[in-house]
Amino acid sequence: MKFEFKDQGAVATLTITSSLFEFRKHNRAVDAALLSADVTARTSGIFIRKTVISGPANRSLRAYKAAINVEAK
Rank of each mutant, 00 (worst) to 15 (best):
A67K: 00
I68G: 00
F3G: 01
A33M: 06
S19H: 13
M1L: 13
A63G: 09
V30Q: 03
A32R: 07
I48S: 10
A57K: 12
I68C: 09
R28Q: 15
A10L: 08
K2T: 08
D7A: 09
I68L: 15
A37Q: 04
S60W: 00
F23E: 11
A10R: 15
N69A: 15
R24G: 10
A63K: 04
G9F: 09
V70C: 08
A33R: 01
I53F: 05
D7T: 02
A67T: 02
T13W: 02
Q8M: 11
A37D: 05
A12N: 01
V70K: 03
S36M: 10
K73D: 11
A66G: 05
V30H: 01
K2H: 13
S36Y: 04
L35F: 05
V70S: 03
R28E: 14
A67M: 07
K73S: 08
T15H: 02
V30R: 00
Y64E: 03
A41W: 02
S54Q: 13
R59F: 08
G9V: 08
T15R: 12
T43P: 00
L34V: 11
R24K: 14
E22D: 15
L20I: 11
V70W: 03
A57V: 12
A32C: 09
L20P: 02
T15M: 07
A12K: 00
T43C: 06
V11S: 04
A10D: 11
A37E: 01
L35M: 12
R24Y: 14
S18W: 03
V11D: 08
A41Q: 12
K50V: 15
V70P: 02
S60F: 02
P56V: 13
K2F: 09
G55N: 07
D38G: 09
V39Y: 03
K2W: 04
A41Y: 07
P56T: 14
I53V: 15
F23M: 13
R28H: 10
F5A: 04
A12S: 15
E22F: 05
F47W: 10
V30D: 02
F3I: 09
L34A: 07
G9P: 06
K2P: 00
